[in-house]
């Protein structure tokens, strides 16, 4: 079922002035694929995401997408503090000219999906870090994107919230089967979520290793404690250490 490519990087490089951030990147992500990307900090992971979203243009090569419906989840929740949870979630609908009723209806749906119905009228000031990140994800979900780009979204959360959000995201992906490119520092998180995992070398970033993660979706959080999982995570960690 993983067939239609949603995004393809063809020999893409990026330089900022005299700094080469990326060596040529070749990467295709298909619908229903969850690709995790790990690499040392400063190696160009965010740059790959920004290229993928179209926020920046490649220096060489091309990025092609079959859909413009892209959800971008930043490192921080990046909510508008002057809007309530619900108003934050309907924001992209407003920008894209969705009718108010339709935006409301979808907001109901995605808020219940992320378990925030009761907090819809709260301001972000009153929310925990995990709830803010759920709101941020709900905001992107409103438009039901074909491609999700995640830039270390759970890095600022405590371990318990992080594990919960991992499980929730995995369930969400199992249900919706979008295409995802997920950048993280955490090997454990990367393996748990991914159908495919890429390791990037230090700057200029290059894809140096690739792992298939064979667990079927939906996944239970307990797979983390299975021996095969530990073996895989160990291999990824070794590749990452070599790349750093």
């Amino acid at each position: 079922m993983a067939l239609d490519p949603v995004i393809a990087f063809a020999e893409v490089t990026k330089s900022f002035g005299s700094i080469d951030a990326l060596d040529p990147i070749r990467l295709t992500i298909r619908k229903g694929e969850f690709v995790s990307l790990v690499g040392p900090s400063g190696c160009g992971k965010s740059t790959v995401l920004r290229l993928g979203s179209g926020l920046i243009e490649p220096t060489e090569g091309t990025v092609s997408r079959t859909s413009d419906n892209v959800g971008y989840i930043f490192q921080e929740p990046t909510l508008m503090p002057w809007r309530t949870v619900e108003q934050n979630v309907t924001f992209l609908g407003e920008l894209d000219g969705m009718s108010r009723q339709e935006a409301r209806r979808r907001a109901d749906e995605v808020l219940s999906l992320v378990g925030l119905e009761e907090f819809r009228h709260h301001y972000p000031l009153a929310l925990s870090g995990g709830m803010k990140m759920r709101t941020s994800i709900a905001r992107s979900l409103l438009l039901d994107p074909d491609l999700f780009l995640f830039d270390e979204p759970f890095g600022a959360l405590d371990q318990i919230s992080r594990a919960r959000l991992n499980a929730e995201l995995c369930a969400l992906f199992s249900e919706r089967r979008f295409a995802a490119l997920f950048v993280t520092h955490s090997v454990d998180e990367a393996v748990f979520l991914a159908s495919r995992l890429l390791v990037m070398s230090k700057r200029p970033g290059r894809l140096v290793a690739e792992f298939e993660i064979p667990y079927p979706f939906p996944r239970q959080p307990e797979i983390r404690y299975e021996p095969e999982f530990a073996v895989l995570a160990g291999q990824v960690a070794a590749a990452l250490a070599e790349a750093s």
Binding site: S53, G54, L55, V70, Y72, F74, E76, T78, M80, L92, L95, D96
Partner: peptide, 14 residues
């Protein structure tokens, strides 16, 4: 204003 919010608006052609 948060530059990432600016990015979000850019992504949606504001």
């Amino acid at each position: 204003a948060d530059p990432r919010l600016h990015d979000l608006l850019t992504l949606h052609n504001a």
